[in-house]
Nucleic acid binder design. Structure first.
Lengths: 343, 343
DNA sequence: ATGGTGCCTGAAACCGGTTTCTGTTAACCG
DNA sequence: CGGTTAACAGAAACCGGTTTCAGGCACCAT
């Protein structure tokens, strides 16, 4: 490991100035004569001085870091999320702490612990209890990602209910399908809960009877395979499988193809998210595009702003638009006009 | 946002003791009489005092955080990696900073910046240049994950070359296949590079001629679909597609099934990693199991130890064993004896 | 010459903890 | 009872920066 740390006082001594002057030069704040500035810069350069992050953070009472909390990361969704978040955080010189609670029991304690190390936290909806969320919001600016906000906690998300409603209507009205299964666990996250609600609402709007229960599985690709097997083993399989996200849909697709079924002729499958794979599988997946990156970027922006000015940061909730992406897995032959479901 | 911060001095004043005593109580260090201890604990409890992380970190000259750097996160591999890393870091009360360089140009600067905020960094092999790696190692303990170490930089990984050699031999010798394609970009990461080397070596051992070039694609599922299409469009498609990881293999499988081919009768496909999906698709994927979680956990342990005692931390490199997992996608009818390829 | 103004500069206080060092007190021992 | 020792408590220094505050100085107008 390298040379021991060099401090401001060290540089000050070497340049024959005060620490205040060194600080002013290294931050570009305040006025310093050209002469001294150069002496200081030379000393800094010569000894490779870099101000210590901790000292600086302590003085500024600011960590220069944002936190991101979600249940567990898997799949393209979280990848996009993190990238969107970083795209805002990094230019603001804030590092990103990630915590996946992954159903651990001590998740609450860990989130609270994180609150003491960052300037703001974005929490995926449904990750922590409401009580802890409020407790958290009392410590540090918080925004809920893809979930409902609270009084003092703004949220960033999309209108899942409307989006899934649009997709479901497409299947019911334009394709005349009647026997739809929904795969996903509404209790698992607000996202899925709203999508299930939209699925039900679309049925009722058209005077149809939706299935009473969703097929409850977790949200990853392997779970889609399992769901497909469960549904197709049935003596009376559904006409369509409406999946709560693309990953499950891809799993279902693999499961269906593996059983020798043709999609969409024998079975219609739809997803949600418009992951990169969705366009590439055959048949390409009908789904709903969600601006995940923008969602996360928006959350980061909100947090940075709140961390900057503690003055009435207007905890508005933000809803970004989605877009129905019609491809072939629903039975459409070619790209039909895709309708935006914004807000 | 909550009440303004309470400090040690505040608690000390309220409890009628010195700050030293408060510190001793809140850390459990040193001796404090039962009387004073109780007074302090009461004050702490009453005002909900939690020592400030920055102040503490500054005094300890230690961030209480580890960094994890990789090119970009996608798929189950990184998910496992992060979880393994966290499984060691969190109990040690260290938070995890994540940086995905994702081919950004300023990646070097960002990694260096991260070095000033953490006590140690694990870098995925091939993420940053060797020069920067050495520079980094001069600032903070570093370990290379899944890639070659340097003199002063220990590494944690598996013997990819031997593992892929074993898999390739299985296809060549036991299944009598002759025309194998390799999908993956050796230049992209040390991992793939070694797997390609193992693929070539197995051919030569058996006196066979390997293909001269791999099919160069990126390592995600959509890329596997593309690779399959490219290979199968050929007038003389290969007998088997050996993929550099499971994600690409799953993509290839989807691509092949989508074209109406039967696996393994018409085409053999193998993966690498043993992702959860690998066992669930049909046919289940023959692959190599890598202890990703343990790899990451080992890296975290190494870093924590190095951060603790700067005294000669023995930068040993660690190689964990892999296991050939034979399933049906290679043509084996049932689970045959699986041979461990350890070290 | 005098007073006012603005630019630089450095001493010192501050951020919020930990730790050393010194001093007091009580216990224990011969 | 005198002396050594251990336990305990607090003042002050320290970690490495930033920022306030006051002073010195040159320049200008009166």
């Amino acid at each position: 490991m390298g040379n021991s740390r060099i401090t401001v006082r060290e540089i000050a001594r070497l340049a024959g100035v005060s620490v205040a002057t060194v600080s002013r030069v290294s931050n570009g704040t305040g006025q310093v004569s050209a002469d001294l500035r150069q002496r200081v810069l030379d000393a800094i350069e010569l000894h490779g001085y870099r101000p210590d992050h901790l000292g600086r953070a302590l003085a500024a009472r600011r960590h220069g870091a944002l936190g991101l909390v979600f249940p567990g990361l898997s799949g393209p969704y979280f990848s996009e999320l993190i990238q969107g978040f970083e795209s805002e955080a990094v230019p603001a010189r804030a590092s990103v702490h990630i915590l996946c609670t992954h159903l651990r029991e001590d998740a609450d304690a860990q989130v609270l612990e994180m609150a003491r190390r960052v300037d703001g936290i974005a929490v995926m909806g449904g990750t922590i209890s409401e009580a802890v969320l409020l407790q958290l919001a009392d410590l540090v600016p918080v925004v809920v990602l893809a979930g409902p906000g609270r009084d003092a906690v703004p949220s960033v998300g999309v209108d899942n209910c409307a989006a899934m409603g649009g997709l479901t209507r497409h299947l019911l009205a334009e394709h005349g399908l009647r026997d739809l299964a929904f795969v996903g666990t509404p209790e698992g996250s607000p996202d899925v809960s709203q999508r299930w609600a939209g699925f039900l609402a679309a049925h009722r709007e058209l005077g149809l009877t939706p299935p009473t229960e969703p097929v409850r599985v977790s949200m990853q690709q392997p779970d889609g395979v399992l769901a497909a097997e469960e549904l197709l083993r049935d003596r009376r399989p559904p006409e369509a499988i409406v999946c709560a996200n693309d990953e499950v849909a891809l799993g279902a697709l693999v499961g269906a193809l593996g059983r020798g079924l043709r999609v969409p002729q024998d079975l219609v499958i739809t997803g949600f998210d418009d992951a990169p794979m969705a366009a590439l599988v055959s048949p390409p997946l009908t789904t709903v595009r969600q601006p995940v990156r923008e969602l996360a970027a928006e959350a980061a922006r909100l947090l940075l702003r709140a961390a900057d000015g503690p003055g009435a940061p207007a905890p508005d909730s933000i809803v970004l638009p989605t877009e129905l992406v019609v491809r072939r897995s629903c039975g459409c032959s070619t790209a039909t006009p895709t309708g935006g479901t914004g807000k």
